[in-house]
Amino acid sequence: MRIRSPQLAVTALASLFTLNIAWADEVQVAVAANFTAPIQAIAQDFEKDTGHKLIAAYGATGQFYAQIKNGAPFEVFLAADDSTPAKLEQEHAIVPGSRFTYAIGTLALWSAKPGYVDDHGEVLKRSAYQHLAIANPKTAPYGLAATQVLDKLHLTEATRGKIVEGQNITQAYQFVSTGNAEVGFVALSQIYKDGQVASGSAWIVPSTLHEPIRQDAVILEKGKDNPAAKALVEYLKGPKAAALIKSYGYEI
Rank of each mutant, 00 (worst) to 15 (best):
N136C: 05
F46W: 12
A79P: 02
A12I: 12
K224E: 03
I104N: 09
F17D: 11
Q40M: 13
V31C: 02
Y192P: 02
E182S: 12
R2Y: 15
A128M: 05
D119H: 14
T61F: 00
T84M: 03
L236V: 12
K162L: 10
F100M: 06
S177T: 13
P206L: 15
V27I: 07
G121L: 10
K230P: 00
G249T: 03
T156R: 09
Y142C: 02
L144A: 08
V176P: 12
A202Q: 10
I191G: 05
D82G: 05
T36K: 05
N70D: 11
R4K: 11
S201P: 04
K224S: 06
D216L: 01
Q63P: 00
Q148C: 07
F100W: 04
W203I: 14
Y102N: 03
I42P: 00
D119L: 14
Q196F: 07
Y102H: 05
T106M: 06
S111P: 04
V233H: 04
A33S: 10
A145M: 07
Y173N: 07
R126P: 00
R214T: 12
A140K: 01
I94N: 03
S127R: 06
V176K: 13
F185R: 14
L236P: 09
Q40P: 00
R126W: 03
T106R: 11
A12K: 06
A103Q: 09
G184S: 11
A66R: 12
A33T: 04
A231Q: 11
I94D: 01
D119G: 11
S207W: 00
S201H: 10
A43G: 06
A158T: 05
A241V: 13
Y173W: 11
Q196L: 07
P137C: 02
Y58D: 00
G71A: 10
D81W: 01
Y142F: 08
A229H: 06
A231S: 14
L109W: 09
P85M: 07
V31F: 03
H210P: 12
A242E: 13
K53F: 13
W110D: 11
